[in-house]
Simulated assay, not measured.
Amino acid sequence: MSVSDLSSRTVLVTGATSGIGYQTARLLAERGATVLVHGRTAEEAHAATDRLVTLANVDEARLRPLGADFTRLEEVERLAHRVLAEHPHLDVLVNNAGMAAPERHTVTADGNEIAFQVNFLAHYLLDPALTSEPGGRVVNVSSVLHRTGSIQWSDPNRTRRYSRLAAYSQSQLALTVFAADPRVTAVSVHPGICATSLLPLYAHEGVAPAEGAAHVVRLCDPATEIVNGAYYDREHRVTPAPVALEERTVKRLSKLADVLVGQTA
């Protein structure tokens, strides 16, 4: 396989209907990959694949639309089961779906702070959909804001003290820590400050989403060697927040996530 050829790869991209996720799906499909295009609903996923075909001239045969609302964990579980049934040899899971925490404290029907669930817990639950065969990997689209975050172990839903920036940063820190889980081969990447719906959390201006997506796609390429748990700021491997490298934190987060997604014994 050449560096530019991904025709033997199957990739699930969450949050692929807009922004970095949409552009990631486009770039992967243009390089020959079969892309599972996830959206909040089946209708949104189909609309995204239609745009990729008509506007980006992507081969329709390379696209598979999938819907699941990450604010409902039962839908995430159904998505995981469907992927396992229809694509048992998934090569890459791109954990891209994300949202800015709302101004007001918001809890999902599953009982979790909404940004923590959408940005982290849903992806934690999805992870079993990734093949365990050699070469499989997870690419977490994280954020430089993970460095400002802290995980409130006794109150992850932040019911006692809430701010949208703290909630968002906590979710990104959790996603970055998750990459160091030894049960998966995973990396995290800050794709840069891009002109997406999340831009107001960072700055007034950002680069085109396609520029950020290129950094994600590079890590999907098997020609790019990765080290489990590595963190990238765009194309450069850098050291993440110190807590993200602590084995104790990785284990503690896994236990917390199991409780919050209802996977306790």
Results as ranks from 00 to 15, higher is better:
L145F: 12
L126E: 04
R137C: 04
Q152P: 07
S143W: 11
D155K: 11
Y162K: 02
T159G: 13
V141K: 00
T148Q: 08
S163P: 00
R137H: 15
R160F: 00
S142P: 02
L121Y: 07
Y124T: 08
S150E: 07
T131Q: 15
L165A: 07
A167E: 05
G136H: 00
H123Y: 08
G135E: 11
P156A: 05
V139M: 03
A167T: 04
L165E: 10
I151M: 02
T148R: 08
V138R: 06
A167C: 12
W153K: 10
D127K: 14
H146E: 10
A129D: 07
S154P: 11
P128L: 10
R147A: 14
T131N: 15
Y168V: 10
A166L: 11
A167M: 05
A167P: 02
V138F: 08
Y124R: 08
R158Y: 04
R160H: 06
S154E: 06
D127N: 09
N119Y: 03
R147V: 12
G149S: 14
L165T: 12
R160M: 01
S142M: 04
V144K: 14
L125N: 12
Y168K: 07
L121E: 13
L126N: 02
S132R: 13
A166D: 04
E133M: 05
A129R: 07
V144W: 10
V138A: 07
N140L: 03
G135I: 03
A129M: 10
R161T: 13
A166M: 14
S163F: 03
S163G: 07
F120E: 08
D155E: 08
N157I: 01
V141E: 00
L121P: 06
S143G: 13
W153L: 11
R161E: 10
V138L: 13
I151C: 02
S142R: 04
R158Q: 12
P128S: 13
I151E: 02
V138G: 05
R164N: 06
D155S: 05
R164E: 09
N119W: 01
L126V: 02
V144F: 08
G136Y: 00
S132V: 12
T131P: 09
P134Q: 05
Y168T: 14
I151G: 01
A122T: 09
